[in-house]
Amino acid sequence: MLTFVVFVVGLVLVGGLLFLGAALLLGRGETQPPAELDRSPVELPDDRPVTGDDVRALQVSVTVRGYRMTEVDWLLDQLAQTIDERDVEIARLRADLEASPPSVVAEEESPRA
């Protein structure tokens, strides 16, 4: 009977120490503070349209518990904004092209010597 009690106490003690170690190592579920958007190491070019290579070259910093979710969210928001701006510009250019007279379009498409 005494060995059973020692076994149970030892099991509870080891389980408690494992739980305490995991709580200290992994945290208690706190959220990370928001990333400072003006100081993010992840940036997209401002002087030209974003290309697939730009997106592939991005490297999001990894913290102890994985990626900074706020930084990834910020990056996705910036990418979405850039794509939206590009779509608006494409729509505007298509509308300008449709509104221009056919003779102007033909002149622009013909090769120049």
Rank of each mutant, 00 (worst) to 15 (best):
F4A: 14
I83G: 00
R56V: 11
S110M: 02
V64I: 02
W74F: 14
G21F: 06
V5W: 07
P101E: 10
D54T: 04
R68Q: 08
A99Q: 09
P45G: 12
R86L: 03
R28S: 05
V55N: 04
D46K: 14
V5A: 12
P45V: 11
L44F: 15
F19H: 04
T31W: 08
E30G: 09
M1R: 11
W74K: 11
A106W: 03
R92D: 14
L24A: 03
V14S: 06
R39G: 06
S40E: 05
E36V: 15
S100L: 10
D38W: 10
D77L: 15
A22N: 01
R28T: 10
E43C: 08
V42T: 14
V64C: 01
E107G: 04
D73N: 13
T82Y: 02
V12A: 12
E107V: 12
E85K: 08
A91T: 08
L26P: 00
V62A: 01
Y67V: 15
S61W: 04
V50C: 05
Q78C: 14
V9Y: 01
L24Q: 02
E30N: 13
D46W: 07
V105A: 10
R112D: 04
P33Q: 04
E89D: 10
A80L: 10
A95K: 09
R39F: 05
V6L: 15
E36I: 15
T63P: 00
L58G: 03
D77Q: 10
V55F: 03
L79S: 01
D38T: 15
V6Y: 08
E43D: 08
R48T: 11
L11K: 05
R39I: 03
L26A: 01
V14F: 04
V105L: 14
R28P: 00
D96P: 00
V104R: 09
I90Q: 06
R65H: 07
V6H: 10
T70L: 03
E85T: 07
V50Q: 00
L76F: 12
R28V: 12
E108I: 09
V14W: 04
L20S: 05
I83H: 09
E71P: 00
P33E: 07
L37R: 15
P111S: 11
D46N: 12
G15D: 02
D84N: 10
A57K: 08
V9A: 13
L75S: 07
P102L: 13
L26M: 03
T3K: 10
E43S: 14
G29F: 01
R65T: 05
A106I: 05
L25E: 03
V55Y: 05
A80P: 00
L93S: 11
D77S: 13
F19C: 06
L37I: 15
R68C: 00
Q78N: 15
G66L: 06
Q59A: 10
T31N: 08
L13Y: 07
E36T: 12
P111Y: 08
P102S: 07
P49G: 06
T3P: 00
G10P: 00
V14C: 02
R86F: 02
V104E: 13
